[in-house]
Amino acid sequence: MKILHIASGDTWAGAEVQVWTLCTELVKQGQTVHAIILNPGRLAEMLAESGVTVTVLDERRFGFAKLLEKIKLELHRWQPDVIHTHRQKENILGSLANKMTISVPGFRTVHGAPEFTPSLKQRIQIGADRFTGKRLQHGIISVSDDLTQKLTGQFPASKIHTIANGIDPEAVRKDASAHDGEVAINDQTNSLHVGFVGRMESVKRVDLFLQMAELIHHNANTEHPVHFHLFGGGSLLEEHKSWATRHNLNEFVTFHGHTTIIRSWIARMNLLVMPSDHEGLPMTALESLALGVPMVTHATGGLIPLLKTAGCNGLVEKHCAAGYAERVEALLKAPPSVALPEAYTAARNANEIVALYQSALTG
């Protein structure tokens, strides 16, 4: 089967990791995979290293109409059996180009719920995105039951298919070990280490993580002192750094910024905390469990079945600093043994998606 994925690649976050993981697994399974990426960068590079044929159409150089024409040319040239898109702009471009040329089955993955209040321009794009999903694509892949419920108000229920994200746990552990020597933690105080991984944006609730850190530090309820690590950049990074400084947290809170070896850092943590307002099924959570690192998370989205299946008693209903502090202290005192459940592997994810492709081709 010849499969075309269309993605942005403007950053390296959960959605991009899942695109790369899926395409890599499809290649392993003997599928022929091509990807159109709208920004040069890490996603395009890693896909190429995985055996995917990559075409970069830089959206910084081409407007919407030019991109549409170039994608149409790629479809004529490559003649894929299935087109799979990711994110709004890519959904619109891919489904329009497909309709205007080869008209093969088209799918999209919705990786999470919207995180921002849309502007007028964004509302127009959302409308176009929903139209193409309803009229021009065969199916919508949702990564969690919670997200599926939200999508049923936007698309016909018959078009929505819930397929959880997946990763290759062996590859994750190998990647973490490969960069272990680049991770430096000062353990002179015999501290426990608690991490946050994500973009510094309001939906991720870094404010709750920092308030939680302050509470745990002052409570001193753990056998050893606790050091808190934040990995990631974003528009609120400097604001959060300033808050930490004003509250005298700098001795036990470290902002590491963006890193390309995050799996090695996760492996060095005693615990990972994810206090987001809402999530789909974040790849960081899968990576953490694959590395045997327990998690404390907001009881939301795909995190609920994931942590329950993994036997990790880290779900927090009380979405406030005190709620997270209480659960973190409990898990640091009695850390559970965790592993990635079989239902969340890359092989299982790819198998279910290929079955969906095949049903569209033969139906």
Rank of each mutant, 00 (worst) to 15 (best):
D180T: 13
P225L: 08
F62P: 05
A213Y: 00
H224I: 09
N313M: 15
N351Y: 14
L249G: 07
S144Y: 01
L73C: 12
F252E: 10
L286H: 02
R77L: 09
A176N: 03
L67N: 05
F62N: 07
G311D: 06
S8R: 11
E342Q: 07
A48N: 12
D168A: 06
S276Y: 05
G166Q: 00
V273W: 03
H218Q: 12
A244F: 03
T260G: 10
A178N: 08
R135Q: 15
Q79S: 15
M269D: 04
R130Y: 10
T85M: 13
H240S: 10
G181A: 04
L136S: 04
A128N: 06
T53V: 15
E49P: 10
L361F: 00
L249D: 07
H161E: 14
K99T: 08
F196Y: 04
T109P: 01
T309S: 15
T222F: 01
E59A: 14
S142Y: 02
V110A: 03
H193E: 09
A220I: 11
M46Q: 14
E115F: 09
L307S: 05
P105I: 03
V52E: 08
T189V: 12
S8W: 14
H86Q: 06
T53C: 13
K318Y: 10
R77N: 11
A113M: 12
T254Q: 09
G323T: 08
S276P: 00
V54H: 11
T309P: 12
E59T: 14
G363A: 11
Q29G: 12
K72Y: 09
G257V: 01
P335A: 10
P305Q: 15
V172S: 00
I304L: 03
D187I: 06
V316P: 02
P80T: 07
A299F: 04
N219M: 11
G232F: 02
G127P: 08
D187F: 04
E352P: 03
N219A: 05
F64R: 08
I160L: 00
H224G: 09
P118S: 12
V82H: 05
D175W: 10
H76G: 12
S276L: 06
V226L: 00
A178L: 04
V194Y: 01
V296Y: 01
R268H: 10
V54K: 03
F155S: 02
V194S: 02
E223R: 10
V104I: 13
H5Y: 11
E329D: 05
G181R: 00
I261M: 09
C312R: 09
T11G: 13
P169H: 01
F255A: 00
H218K: 15
L271V: 01
T24K: 14
D146G: 08
G257P: 00
L306P: 02
A299V: 11
E90L: 01
S119T: 06
G112L: 05
T362S: 14
I163H: 00
Q18K: 08
D175L: 07
S103G: 06
